[in-house]
Design a protein around this nucleic acid. Sequence first.
DNA 1: TCTACTTTGTTGTCAATGACTACATTGGCT
DNA 2: AGCCAATGTAGTCATTGACAACAAAGTAGA
Lengths: 203, 203
Amino acid sequence: MTDQPYHHGKLREALLERAMDTIEEAGVDGLSLRQLARDVNVSHGAPAKHFRDKQALIDAVALAGFESMNRRILGAAQSGDDLRSRFVRVGRAYVDFAVEHPALLTVMYSTKHHPDSSEELRNTGAQGIHVAQAMIAEAQATGALADGDPGTLAMVCFVSLHGTALLAAGGHLDGTSVEDVVTAATDTLWAGMAAGVPAAQLS
Amino acid sequence: MTDQPYHHGKLREALLERAMDTIEEAGVDGLSLRQLARDVNVSHGAPAKHFRDKQALIDAVALAGFESMNRRILGAAQSGDDLRSRFVRVGRAYVDFAVEHPALLTVMYSTKHHPDSSEELRNTGAQGIHVAQAMIAEAQATGALADGDPGTLAMVCFVSLHGTALLAAGGHLDGTSVEDVVTAATDTLWAGMAAGVPAAQLS
DNA sequence: TCTACTTTGTTGTCAATGACTACATTGGCT
DNA sequence: AGCCAATGTAGTCATTGACAACAAAGTAGA
């Protein structure tokens, strides 16, 4: 054993990284502050200096997850194809991320976030839907999609992809393949938005 | 204090009921076997006779939740209106249930069900989608909807409503009202399925 | 009725955990 | 050199889930 310096130096980063790994392997419930400290060769009280309590650590993990996911989504939205292809690509990016990090996604959307820290978390988490809203508004301007409140429509798309992501991540898609569901969902939504909803159908 | 009989008599039911209340009030993490035992005026070891461990109790709660939800969905699917109205009604029933029992829904779909999650749980949980699939197949037969694999389309609808339900339950719908999202989602999906997806668009 | 046997509940115990406190070490700053 | 905030350590406490040994109550058969 080489002598460990008294100060770790990058404890916060090390804890965050290790926590994400642990969560991905054993879920949030498999995460223990004491075990985490052991994993990073630090005393069981050290993490408290960087995260007030366990929830604060989890919140930080969630935030990092959103940031990582947003990068993927923005990347997909900036490909050079036509709007509809980009729309499908964004959906795929979202679901792909979910399938790759199922437990992380659960943590990201977990409802038990402290009311105070949720400010930054909410903003970062809402970024994905803004991408969808911009694309829909743009497509309406070109006439590719029928009129309708872009905010509500974006929420519908987001909601659908979110459901796909969660169910895919949880393995609840039964027989249907993730790929098929994403394709069918984006196709159906786009077709529905292009056709518009006859006013007579509104109840 | 009146003398308590040595045998509770309905301990299992009492534990289940109280557990559902606690979960709805404090989430799954707020559930403690020992506190639960205290609440029902029983020793801390008693629950073990009815539920092997905490997860077994949670699974039982989830199962009860699915059964309750299925009753609502089947009721909505059997109203006498036209197919499209019934479709919307089923969606609303699902989301309404979710909004009324947010924490319970989270438990029901929690991915941390032991890999050998009881077959009963899986079957009961999959019942809702079968309702949707039957309605879609029926609508295709009458020509109200375009052709397409009913299984995949039902999964798309389910996924969308599930996403709506979870996000609504978690309060992640931001400005948009639950009612608007459900209406827009079911309308858009139905319009998309009615229009069908031009083969040329399939990539 | 007496007697095994099963079910259900009680009590005691254990290791693990999250949170808290008091203390030690470090390195930057003046 | 000397102060001091940041960072880490060590010890403690109540709570928890799980387990085992024991007790009480119902049950079935002679």
